[in-house]
Write a protein that binds this DNA or RNA. Structure first.
Lengths: 222, 222
DNA sequence: GCGCCACTTCGCCGAGGGGTGAAGCATCAG
DNA sequence: CTGATGCTTCACCCCTCGGCGAAGTGGCGC
């Protein structure tokens, strides 16, 4: 367990409105530049730079410079999971409000690099139910049936194995049951987007940190 | 999903050292008075009172006055789960430090009103493996075999059904797999403590907000 | 009744942190 | 080289927020 001081240090990073907006924007999984994040948060470039420095120093965000741009990503899926969980509690404790995305968010969205929402929880259940994955130390492994089935769907299992974790659980706040995270979940999400079973429901949405994350089921997505 | 503003408002409540200490202390599941929390956090009564007001207003803590004392508890297991998750990430991002409890915390501890740690994750697996619980909408239900088995252990199933949720998952940060939460988990924990299979490893530990939560396996706890 | 105790409210102070504008530094285009 | 762009650093302002001491409120015990 972390000491309370560690908890406070971490929560303090999330507890500033501008930083919270940035992190929510980054939860879509894309790498964004400091300028984009500044505009999304509605603050000036200097303020955004200071915030991002603190997020990087705190281990929540990583940077990789490219030319004169500095691209920022969430540091890990653990960070994404924690923000998701906290966001769920925030929705529960400060509820009576509707935001512009309605329930679409609860159906399918991105959580950093993998799928979340009702669809993702159902997928998790289906993978277990079909015997494609089975419990293992620290998460899940694919069974023989799962390997062939997933490969047939077009999931890149080799890439999935390259991740730090192959598959583990990630609590879904809207369903209150776990969905799948880890390398396998990343490849499944990538496969769904690549094959256009799912599409990003919105693009180019500065000023709305959440819109990037929403997903829509296409006709092909049987 | 919550708006970033909601997230920030909530995280801000957790992001203050004194409040974080109080919440960690409350994570043991006991109701504590304002004075106890003030001493635990190492601040004066006025400051503690102000902090607690904000926690109550924010929906994280509930009060029930008894005479001249005011007892404070966490508002729900959702709050406890979020703090646990965030604490896990805090431990991961600010790691290289040993705190006085060693690995005992990872083996067995209380998470609000139910068990957490390696033991609790193993218990979750055992319940599923024996077919005592099965997936259901919003969590888990007990099977017929589970009802008889749990009743034989001494678990009060009627009390468990009285809870808002009978059984659902709660992510265990140290194992990164879910353990059981909800009314059933509360009754199981209460049963383990009542029958002295587990005991609180420390009592009366002002100044150490974490010690209250650690549990120890007794010889009877086969 | 009185005093004691737990707790809250009030008034005040000091420090920290977020915001901006202006300047400094890289990178890229012409 | 020159100018534009993206980002950072610096200096400064302001305002919030946490802390305390003192005073006020209400329950409990003698």
């Amino acid at each position: 367990m972390s000491s309370p001081a560690d908890l406070a240090r971490l929560a303090d990073l999330l507890g500033e409105p501008a930083r919270a907006v940035m992190l929510q924007a980054l939860l879509a999984g894309e790498a964004l530049t400091a300028g984009e994040l500044a505009r999304t948060a509605g603050i000036g470039a200097p303020a955004a730079s200071a915030h991002l420095s603190r997020l990087v120093e705190g281990g929540l965000v990583v940077v990789h410079p490219q030319g004169r741009h500095r691209y920022h990503r969430l540091a890990s899926e653990e960070v994404a999971a924690a923000i998701e969980t906290l966001g769920g509690l925030a929705a529960a404790t400060a509820p009576p409000r509707r935001w512009p995305h309605g329930d679409a968010f609860r159906v399918a969205r991105l959580c950093y690099d993998h799928l979340a929402g009702r669809l993702a929880v159902a997928l998790h259940g289906a993978l277990v139910g079909r015997g494609w994955i089975q419990p293992a130390a620290g998460g899940w492994t694919a069974t023989a049936a799962g390997e062939t089935g997933l490969a047939a769907m077009g999931v890149d299992l080799a890439a999935a194995r390259g991740a730090r974790r192959f598959a583990c659980d990630c609590m879904d706040w809207s369903e209150r049951r776990p969905h799948l995270a880890g390398g396998l979940a990343r490849e499944i999400a990538s496969c769904c987007l690549r094959r256009h079973w799912l599409t990003r429901a919105a693009v180019a949405c500065e000023g709305d940190a959440l819109a990037r994350r929403r997903l829509a089921l296409t006709p092909e997505g049987g």
